[in-house]
Design a protein around this nucleic acid. Sequence first.
DNA 1: ACAGTAGCTTACCCAAAGTAAGTATGCCGC
DNA 2: GCGGCATACTTACTTTGGGTAAGCTACTGT
Lengths: 117, 117
Amino acid sequence: MEAMDSDMGPFCPKYHRAVELIGRRWTGAILRALLSGVSRFSAICETVPGLSDRMLAERLRELEAEGIVTRTVVPETPVRVEYALTAKGRDLDSVIGAVSGWAERWEAASEVSAPTG
Amino acid sequence: MEAMDSDMGPFCPKYHRAVELIGRRWTGAILRALLSGVSRFSAICETVPGLSDRMLAERLRELEAEGIVTRTVVPETPVRVEYALTAKGRDLDSVIGAVSGWAERWEAASEVSAPTG
DNA sequence: ACAGTAGCTTACCCAAAGTAAGTATGCCGC
DNA sequence: GCGGCATACTTACTTTGGGTAAGCTACTGT
C-alpha cells in the first residue's frame, strides 16, 4: 500500500482543514462533552463555562454539516433535542486524548524542559 | 501511581486551555511547520498559504509566551531570526499526529460510517 | 542615493464572537 | 383560554480579533 500521508510534511491541506475546524473557539470543549456522553443542548451549555446558547447552536450546526454530530428531536414535552457523535466524530477521541495528555504533562504553564526532570 | 486525569470527564480546564491555545487560527499550521524543521520567519510565512507576516508574528509571540517556541536572533546580514520548538512544543507532535491521522481517515468530507467498511 | 531583503509594527476595516432579548411549542395553574 | 414557565433556538446589536496594506529599521549591492 502507499505511504500514509501523515508524514509531518511542512504543510498538509487535510490537516490544515481539520485543525482549523476542530480548533474553532468552543468546538474542542463541545466535542469533549459529547464524547463524555453529554447529549442535550442545555446540558452541553451548562457543561462548558462561558459558552452561550447562540455559539453552541452555531458550532453544532457546523459539526452537523461536517458529518461529525447527528441531531435527533425527541418529541417529549417539552421537546428535547439529542446530539450524538457519528463514527467520524467518535474517532476524534484520539485527538482529544492527545490534547488532554499534553495538557496534563505541561499544565504548569511556561516550563520548557522535560516535565519529570 | 495516580490515575491519569485525561479521563474524558465532560469538562477539563487544562484541556480547554490547551485546545483553545493550539486551536487558534493558523497556530496548528505554524506548529506543524516548526515540527517539520522550518525555522525561519519568512520560511514559515511561505509554507502556510494565506498566512500574513503580521499574524505569524502575533502567533509566534503567543507561543513564545507559552514556552512552546524559542526565538533566536542570528546576527548575520540581513539579520535572521530562528524559531524553534522547546521540549513542550516538540511534545505537541502527538497532537499534530492525531489530527493528521484523523484527517487522513476522514478527509473525504461528510462520511459518517467507518472508512474501511 | 536608491532598490531590495528580513523581520517586524502601525493603521484601518471587516468578519467572527459576545450579550441580550425575542420566538415557537406545549404543559400547568386559574 | 390566557399568562407563565421550560427547551431549543433565532435575531439584533456590540465588541473583539483576524485580514490587508503600508511603513520602518538595518544592512547590501550598484
